[in-house]
Design a protein around this nucleic acid. Structure first.
Length: 119
DNA sequence: CTCTTGACGCCAT
DNA sequence: GATGGCGCCAAGA
């Protein structure tokens, strides 16, 4: 039966991913792959990147999403890079050379990810 | 339909 | 730490 307008998988995924990104607390960072995993879409890091690249969703803390190695995903020197670094620093995140510092940024971005930052 | 591109990730060298 | 190759998936040409 009818009923439900069968939501496209793509749209559902988008919604889940956006929710996962919003769930990242201020002052913290997460990896694309980690976001995908939290959204229930393991291995879809690229999908996360693609959705963020669309740039919609106002208020979305996209700047808290980094590569798995703790590096900013934009090419150094680009606008996106600069803006992301500024935003992160504005939240108290230590960024050096386009890389987030904090012991490991995310050795595996799995367990220590949601650890509260010392202050 | 095929081919390329991309805000990625992991592993080997 | 830097580079290169392969995997993955969606969108555009």
């Amino acid at each position: 039966m009818p009923g439900k307008p069968t939501e496209n998988p793509a749209e559902k995924h988008r919604r889940l991913i956006l929710a996962a990104v919003r769930a990242v607390p201020r002052g913290q960072v997460a990896g694309y792959g980690e976001i995908a995993r939290r959204a229930g879409l393991p291995g879809r890091a690229r999908l996360v990147a693609r959705i963020l690249s669309e740039g919609d969703e106002p208020g979305l803390p996209w700047h808290r999403v980094l590569r798995s190695d703790g590096r900013v995903a934009f090419p150094p020197g680009s606008e996106g890079f600069d803006e992301q670094v500024q935003r992160l620093r504005a939240e108290g995140v230590r960024v050096e050379g386009g890389r987030v510092r904090g012991q490991s940024a995310a050795a595996t971005l799995d367990e220590m990810l949601w650890a509260p930052p010392p202050r």
